[in-house]
Design a protein around this nucleic acid. Structure first.
Lengths: 156, 156
DNA sequence: CAGAAAACTGACTTTCTTTGACCATTTAAG
DNA sequence: CTTAAATGGTCAAAGAAAGTCAGTTTTCTG
């Protein structure tokens, strides 16, 4: 297993159940995992970003710390944010898959729905001679369309 | 025997019996068979494509992997195959909607899934300057891709 | 056998991870 | 107040896989 994955799950374990917040010392954690301290920042950036539903604060100097807060947000809120702000008028395949997997992880969509969306928007499915820029525009539109459909279902 | 065939059966052996999923390292496998790593991609593309009933995911970088998932065949899925035959390489919006509603009526897909598919493929979602013929080709591909995903649903 | 299709390879690309050197901020001592 | 110590942050570069694609070789087929 990758170091980053280990650190990620370690942090998530610390935060599990009720706690929505965890505080840690970058250097201690790095020492514990025997890695460069900056590795911790990498994990934060790639697994605990706002897109992943987390916020982080920190302080330097003596008694410094890193605090990670899991943002609780209703599914509908999250979906609306994605539709109205996050997704503009272009989405690459990578972005699309990342977003979908985040929605799944946050249990806003089911695994089946996630798979369905990914299937629709994968470049394999779109393997038709259209320039990438148009594919990205199409993806953005379809993604929003599907997310709104899901939002509507949740309300029902 | 051809190399590709050997690799194919090797992978299928790994996946035999109960396992519907196998994870491997491209470079290791290539080394084992004494071939170029890209040969593995060739085998995946020609023998483990969605058309063949498999889905693949992968990650690059340290600790990278390739995962192959076999889509389990069951009653509803055989229907999917029929449907796949019927959908050629072009689908108008009307045909699409008709198909979706048939699938829903036959309870092959849920209402939610039907809505999701319709949302993805509606002309509104696809309202991007692409000629209709291409849109229809895209629809066909995406529809098949989504149906494939639904067929894969409920896998262990 | 000739042409087409399939198999194969290698060079190049892209993505993800890990590290280290250097920078910035905060607190504690002098 | 000044300076040193203690933290955390940034960024670029190296390393570790996997992906792509054009071109070559092999195999099939009429």
């Amino acid at each position: 297993m990758r170091l980053s994955d280990s650190i990620e799950s370690f942090i998530k374990t610390l935060m599990n159940e009720d706690a929505t917040e965890v505080e840690l010392k970058r250097n201690e954690l790095a020492e514990y995992f025997g890695c460069a301290p900056s590795q911790i920042n990498y994990v934060l950036a790639t697994r605990f970003s706002p897109d992943h539903g987390y916020l982080t604060e920190s302080r330097r100097g003596g008694g410094g710390y890193i605090r990670i807060v899991r943002v609780v947000q209703s599914g509908a809120q999250r979906l609306m944010y994605l539709v109205n702000e996050r997704i503009g008028d272009s989405l690459t395949e990578e972005e699309t898959l990342r977003l979908i997997s985040q929605l799944k992880e946050q249990r806003i969509v089911t695994a089946d729905e996630a798979a369905l969306m990914a299937a629709a928007l994968s470049s394999r499915a779109m393997g038709v001679p259209v320039p990438d820029s148009l594919k990205d525009a199409l993806r953005a539109r379809m993604m929003k369309s599907m997310l709104m459909s899901i939002a509507a279902r949740n309300r029902a």
